[in-house]
């Protein structure tokens, strides 16, 4: 998922205009449909996560054993879990926790990555070489393993999870920002600013940073689902959030017992809550990337 080096497809030659135009129209309409669906889902997720918890209060400790493990029905669209809590409500709460952790971790990772990448490119020379070697070293440890190690050493909890996700995700941002700054630095307007007497700091803040921000922001948006995925995996392994702050990973982990008894719904729905927002964010980010870089026909990127 962190792979951002997908080869770009070269623009198609526009021979045979009639055929290609027809082709282009259907492609554009599926793209609009994709973007609209993605936008609707993202808005729905944001609303659900923000509005539902204050309205429908879920007591995570409440137990109603008479209603335990009800299959999906009208009263409980997703069924109930092994102690009789409504699964839909629990999934929304879990999504809220996962999304929050993902957002904070992606934000921290983007700030680190932008700072490191910009510094490496701006200073150049030895600093650049040492920093990029360090980035290579970091990326040769598998991300989840590094996350597991950090969480194991600092004991499971919200902050170790956020730190471990952030520490493993800044690498790609640093690489993107560095290459972007390097290409911006060679532009004539930067030369003009330098010969006009602008200080290093002014060039960085006034001319380089605004050029880099869209790319960094795009990387940050794409990082949110990845961070959520990461947090769920850690929680699933029992190395994530404490069970009273159940994230989607915790929900799947605690449903393992009822799954082995044949009840599929406590496992299925939290997973879907992870997949659908991920796809929606990827769909929106694809459209955004096309706007930043229209020459490049974009593929969905997760």
């Amino acid at each position: 998922m962190a792979d951002l080096t997908k080869p770009a497809r070269a623009p198609r030659p526009t021979a045979e205009p009639s055929r290609w135009r027809a082709h282009g129209r259907t492609r554009r309409s599926t793209r609009t449909l994709r973007v609209r669906t993605s936008a609707v889902i993202v808005v729905a997720v944001a609303l659900a996560v923000l509005v539902v918890p204050p309205l429908a209060n879920l007591d995570e400790q409440a137990v109603d054993l008479a209603l335990k493990l009800q299959p999906p029905s009208l009263a409980h669209p997703f069924g109930t879990d092994d102690v009789g809590r409504d699964l839909l409500l629990r999934c929304v709460y879990g999504l809220r926790v996962s999304l929050l952790v993902g957002l904070v971790a992606a934000l921290v990772a983007t700030v680190i990555g932008t700072a490191v990448g910009a510094a490496a490119a701006a200073f150049g020379g030895w600093t650049d070489r040492v920093v990029m070697r360090l980035v290579d070293t970091f990326s040769s440890v598998p991300h989840l393993l590094l996350g597991i190690f950090i969480v194991a050493m600092f004991r499971p909890g919200v902050w170790p999870v956020i730190v471990s996700v952030a520490l493993t995700h800044w690498l790609s941002t640093a690489r993107i920002v560095r290459s972007e700054v390097l290409s911006l630095r060679a532009r004539p307007y930067v030369d003009a600013a330098i010969s006009g007497g602008a200080s290093r700091w002014r060039v960085a803040v006034r001319h380089l940073l605004p050029g880099v921000l869209p790319q960094a922001a795009l990387a940050a948006v794409l990082m949110v689902p990845h961070a959520m995925w990461h947090e769920s995996a850690l929680s699933f392994l029992g190395l994530g959030l404490p069970s009273h702050e159940a994230s989607l990973g915790n929900l799947i982990q605690s449903a393992r017992g009822s799954l082995l008894a044949g009840d599929w719904w406590p496992t299925l729905f939290p997973g879907l809550f992870l997949i659908v927002p991920t796809l929606a964010i990827a769909g929106l980010a694809g459209a955004w990337r096309e706007r930043i870089n229209p020459r490049r026909r974009s593929e969905l990127m997760l």
Binding site: M1, P225, W229, S232, A233, F236, G249, I252, T267, P270, G271, L274, I275, T278, L279, A282, L302
Partner: peptide, 8 residues
């Protein structure tokens, strides 16, 4: 499948 967690 890219979006689905492997453990799930």
């Amino acid at each position: 499948l890219e979006a689905a967690p492997a453990f799930w």
